[in-house]
Design a protein around this nucleic acid. Sequence first.
DNA 1: TAAATTATTTAGATTAGTCTAAAACTTAAG
DNA 2: CTTAAGTTTTAGACTAATCTAAATAATTTA
Lengths: 218, 218
Amino acid sequence: MQTFTEENYLKTIYKLSEDAESVTTNQLAAVLHTKAASVTDMLKKLSEKKLIDYIPYYGVTLTETGKRIAVDVVRRHRLWEYFLVEKLNFKWDEVHEMAEELEHISSVELVDRLDQFMGHPAYDPHGDPIPDKHGRIKQHEFKPISQLSVDECGVISGVREHSPAFLQYLEKLNLMLGNQIRVIEVLVYDQSVVLTVNQSENKISISKEAAKNILVTS
Amino acid sequence: MQTFTEENYLKTIYKLSEDAESVTTNQLAAVLHTKAASVTDMLKKLSEKKLIDYIPYYGVTLTETGKRIAVDVVRRHRLWEYFLVEKLNFKWDEVHEMAEELEHISSVELVDRLDQFMGHPAYDPHGDPIPDKHGRIKQHEFKPISQLSVDECGVISGVREHSPAFLQYLEKLNLMLGNQIRVIEVLVYDQSVVLTVNQSENKISISKEAAKNILVTS
DNA sequence: TAAATTATTTAGATTAGTCTAAAACTTAAG
DNA sequence: CTTAAGTTTTAGACTAATCTAAATAATTTA
Ligand SMILES: [Mn+2]
Ligand SMILES: [Mn+2]
Ligand SMILES: [Mn+2]
Ligand SMILES: [Mn+2]
């Protein structure tokens, strides 16, 4: 059994591991809004419990056990987000903080029933895959809009940035999950992208940064 | 903002206050599965925060602020229990422990939406009233079966004991909420009660203790 | 009403998680 | 290869919640 805090560390190590081989103390301190010294203490503890492999000064990776726990936390987080949006009608920019609390509710049976109640959803409101009860994850082949060429189309299927501000911005531009976009032009000087949504004539322009953070499938 | 632990103390003081004017240190220690010394420490802290009126050696009562917080915790507990039974199809003896965790999820908006999603239920799966968002509580005029005379009828509307064992026992005898019972006989030597359920010819017998813990309305 | 019993509080420790400041280590530059 | 800069760990302290044992207050009993 893990504490609330241990689960948050494991989840964060898991997410940071997607970008890099191993995760550093400072990275964790930044994401978890804590100090490097506190992180070191926790890493020792998680290492004692065999949930991570920790080499002082060199970083940390999850053990199989640690990874399984992390994936379960992610599963709960995403299932609750789906619930909040689909059943309680919250908007996609409103659910993250609530899910940060709900993900630590421990009952396995509760999560399974919730999953069943909602018909075993495969993706959360931000397009992130929901691991199944065995920890298996279905991986999309996502591509950021920034990698599309002119005239290429794609269906918006995920986001790389989850801040309410960014999500609200997307909503305002009608860049919501499931909508089809077509790249009209990529400006040379700043790589901003001009595109249309759902065959509309209305052209919208988004920055290179935004284009990197919107994921499409073809 | 209160911690998980503070909320549990306030809720317990609130519940124990229904039976007695003021609540003692040992009562709290027993219900919260902790030691009297720990209770004293927490009472000092809650008193500092003006959530309780605490007279050392003489006991404790809730302030208006403390009571409001306690009622909100109770509201969340009962709403989640209702959700678990009505939406996720748990049985009434399975939901208490999960609700003990869920009741501490802090979002007010979440609870209000949940309430709305379920159509503002008035009673939880055990017949206990669910306070509304303003802290108002609709009070039944309940009566234990032990107070009925021979031939009197009543509709089962609540229970005074919430242990899974007791709830499962009631289920086995078909003594569920909403069912009508009629008292056939009260045995003189041990005050056990013989009764019928929903006009059935089948007579069942329950102990005096059980009869005290089943509440009916007429 | 004095003694015995019971209830409650105080004293002093412990554990989880956190912090600041200082020391130790790694890496990058010159 | 040595120094400077940046990163990480260690040392020591703090808070919240808990505990055991001892002291004290309240209540019951004789
Ligand atoms: Mn989220
Ligand atoms: Mn999400
Ligand atoms: Mn309950
Ligand atoms: Mn209940």
